[in-house]
Design a protein around this nucleic acid. Structure first.
Lengths: 338, 338
DNA sequence: GCATGTTGTGCATACGTATACATGTCAACG
DNA sequence: CGTTGACATGTATACGTATGCACAACATGC
């Protein structure tokens, strides 16, 4: 069984040396047009493709960037990963998705085997060791929409938009506002909760502890959490959800109870994922421009990989998107479902 | 600036030769426990991680598998990719997602640079050259839920469940059934259309050409297509959608028109993606077990990579999931929206 | 005490590409 | 006509790991 052709085979066929093949195929200027033509032809005839492992070994670069992401089935991540991939491709890097599933804890080891020139982290607990581990191994990296305790790592993210939702709901007349959010070691969950509490405090309101529920950042998590809140003795008139996925779960709970949003309860979220704009969802939420985030993040990583000193923090602005899942609180409680 | 440690550095520190380091860290039996211990310690002290490029070059294997997929933002793909990744990890392979965006046509070249031991193709037009290109370069590969014209490539997919939907709708009394599906060079779109036509024919029905719309396999494609169908002079009483994403688009169209499903029109789909089960969607659809598909596909690829001769075709069964988006046709047309 | 086998380790080299340096050719220029 | 320089190409080697083979040390059997 014939092994794939190498640059040595091409050289033999073209009647030149191996380095000449290497130079010709990379289109370096120091090769004569005639020689280039001969090499091209020989390479084509042999179906030659330069072996990536050899190239990486010799150049000590892989032209690959790892994107750390938790389960892709959370629709937020594909929306972020897609523009990240585009931006990376634009710079000549291949994006490699690396799972951060809870099964196998992701260590910096797996990221420092030379397979990646840099790392984009879209998932990480606030107390993750990943930041310092990556830095101690000199792996260029950027945290995307995640703040970690390590103050020396690069960060790109959004400003806290919680006050936009708080102002909106209070203005509409809501006083009993609940929070349905993710585990507090996720920086977005933590920061959005802080922001919401602070904004409500300025309106003279506070959220009682029993009206704050921390659940998985999933649709079913949001559904179950909302069911708990809405069937309690004193249900909220509005639920702020830690992200849109959870908010969609809450809307499912509303439907499951035979209630309607916003007539019986207002539901709002964060992120503005595409599903938030569907007619059957129409979720009021805080818009985060993931294309802009991807652009800034990849630029920051690029600088890090080039060894440039540049700002460690990038904060993008967010905006409120008013759709149909919020409204004024109803005076009386809706009827309990059978 | 210090370069990362190599096995030679570890060898020097442990007082052994480089090959001994290689053998010790891979836990080969021919190394004495004392030596292993010394090597482990030295490696730990130097933060040593074996360079993947060196390993690939020496072993001629990468322990990586490429998964070809179109835009991840179609929620179907993450649901397929996730179990594929799990199955591959179980066999010791890393999964690398490779985009098949329409911008840069994916050639077999990029897949035969030695970066991947095998390829799983989840997106490919029926007439794609990929199949024969991969085979001519001896790259082991499996087409997952995609049939291509090449009869020698391995295929894993589902049986055609269109008759389940046809039987259901006819039984409910529908006679004017429309089809909203994807470009016919996608094998699933093609096969489901064939299956539906055949099943309806057995019931003595046929779909007029004007009731068949081919649109992008997206939510907005489905929404626009459904709007076209439902606002025509003689709207269908049921729409069969080429997949659940399109069906959700159709449900959005129904909502946008002020209609309701199934009261005013029945909507059914294929795939049974998670969103189909949401309370606010509750889509009647054909269930495809993606975990089973992933399992079979990876097993088939594994056999191909091991050079085994084994069956080229694997067909899994599907089942009907009855939810709330279908019902009996209404007698009169619903009122036109303002 | 010698042939035989076993165990642990080192030596030499392969894997495929890129690059610093040397070399040869040829034109331009004095 | 010798010197200089530009250009094109070859030579030698580096990159880091894995593996076939040789070999030394030691135990076993007779």
């Amino acid at each position: 069984m014939p092994r794939p052709a190498t640059s040595i085979d091409v050289a033999a066929r073209a009647g030149v040396s191996q380095p000449t093949v290497s130079r010709a195929l990379r289109n370096l200027p120091s090769i004569s047009p005639e020689t280039k033509e001969r090499v091209y032809r020989a390479a084509r005839e042999l179906n030659y493709v330069p072996r990536e492992a050899g190239r990486s070994l010799a150049t000590r670069r892989s032209r690959r960037v790892a994107i750390i992401s938790e389960a892709l089935t959370n629709p937020y991540y594909p929306e972020l990963i897609e523009p990240l991939r585009r931006e990376l491709a634009h710079l000549g890097y291949r994006a490699v998705l690396v799972a951060d599933s809870s099964d196998d804890v992701l260590t910096a080891d797996a990221l420092s085997d030379g397979s990646y020139d840099g790392v984009l982290v879209t998932t990480a607990a606030r107390d993750s060791r990943l930041a310092e581990d990556l830095r101690s191994r000199d792996v260029p990296h950027v945290f995307v929409n995640r703040t970690v305790d390590d103050p020396l790592s690069r960060n790109c993210g959004f400003s806290n938009g919680a006050h936009l939702l708080a102002d909106l709901l209070v203005e509409q007349g809501h006083r009993r506002i609940a929070l349905l959010t993710g585990p507090s070691q996720f920086s977005t969950a933590f920061e959005r909760e802080q922001g919401l509490r602070e904004a409500l405090r300025e309106h003279g309101l506070r959220i009682p502890d029993r009206q704050v529920l921390r659940i998985d950042y999933t649709v079913s998590g949001g559904r179950n959490g909302a069911l708990t809140l809405l069937t309690s003795s004193e249900p909220p008139t509005a639920i702020v959800c830690g992200n849109d996925v959870v908010a969609i779960g809450a809307l499912n709970a509303v439907r499951a109870m035979g209630w309607r949003a916003p007539d019986d309860v207002s539901i709002v979220g964060f992120d503005d994922i595409p599903a938030a704009g569907w007619d059957i969802v129409s979720l009021t939420t805080v818009h985060c421009d993931l294309n802009a985030l991807a652009s800034v993040s990849v630029a920051a990583l690029h600088e890090a990989m080039e060894g440039e000193k540049s700002p460690l923090r990038h904060i993008l602005e967010v905006s409120l998107v008013r759709r149909d899942s919020h409204g004024r609180p109803r005076e009386k409680l809706p009827p309990k479902p059978a």
